[in-house]
């Protein structure tokens, strides 16, 4: 018999770690898919076309102006009304993507626009096409600026995956609730979960601060 650790039985630990796995998975989806869509959002936000710019602005404002929880409800409970089959995993992945894309899009738009106007102009004057200007001149400079806030936002993504527990997605918080229902040790179990989130997030915060310092020094 394996002894319990921190008052949690091995079986419950196994369940928690399985939940942790899904938390990491949801975070990765939020960051990767959200990053992909977010990049398109950032480009749209600085597009020459008023319509594209407007649509992107509406999207960003809608997502930023509604709680992630409500977004999850709309996807999970709302869409099946129209005949879409929506398992919790799919709803959670889509919600995390839409959520991250709006915020990452705004962060990256700011980074692109903080590359001085004169750099865009210099690229234009060298006869570079728009995509060449973006790829060769603007993006490499924006990337440096973008790294610290992007890594910082990953912390928000990780923490916000816990919202998916309300639609039955078996990530860490959801598993914690189940274990608590069985053991009635809310203080112990939620403190352990808090600790696990901290273990995921703190390295990201630390990395973000470190990168910020490093890039600042390199910039001088």
């Amino acid at each position: 018999m394996i002894p319990s650790l921190l008052g949690i039985s091995p079986a419950h630990w196994a369940a928690l770690l399985a939940g942790l796995k899904w938390t990491v998975f949801l975070s990765a989806v939020g960051f990767l898919a959200g990053g992909l869509v977010g990049f398109a959002v950032a480009l749209s936000r600085i597009s020459d076309s008023l319509i594209i710019r407007g649509l992107a602005a509406v999207y960003v404002n809608l997502i930023q102006g509604t709680p992630l929880l409500v977004l999850m409800f709309v996807l999970y409970f709302g869409l099946p009304v129209f005949g879409f089959d929506m398992p919790p995993l799919a709803a959670a992945c889509i919600a995390m993507t839409l959520f991250s894309a709006a915020y990452l899009g705004e962060i990256w738009r700011g980074c692109l626009q903080s590359v001085p106007r004169t750099q865009w102009e210099a690229a234009d004057c060298l006869a570079l096409a728009r995509w060449e200007r973006m790829l060769l001149v603007i993006l490499p400079q924006a990337l440096r600026i973008a790294v610290p806030p992007t890594v910082g936002f990953m912390v928000q993504i990780v923490k916000n995956t816990s919202v998916a527990s309300v639609i039955g997605m078996a990530e860490m918080t959801y598993i914690g609730k189940l274990i608590n229902n069985a053991t009635f040790q809310p203080f112990r179990i939620y403190l352990i979960i808090a600790g696990l989130y901290f273990l995921l997030c703190y390295p990201l915060s630390w990395l973000s601060r470190r990168l910020e310092r490093k890039l600042n020094v390199a910039h001088r």
Partner: peptide
Amino acid sequence: VGIVFQSYNLFPH
């Protein structure tokens, strides 16, 4: 057409 600006505008990266 070549153009040179007051602020050089070299690409720093």
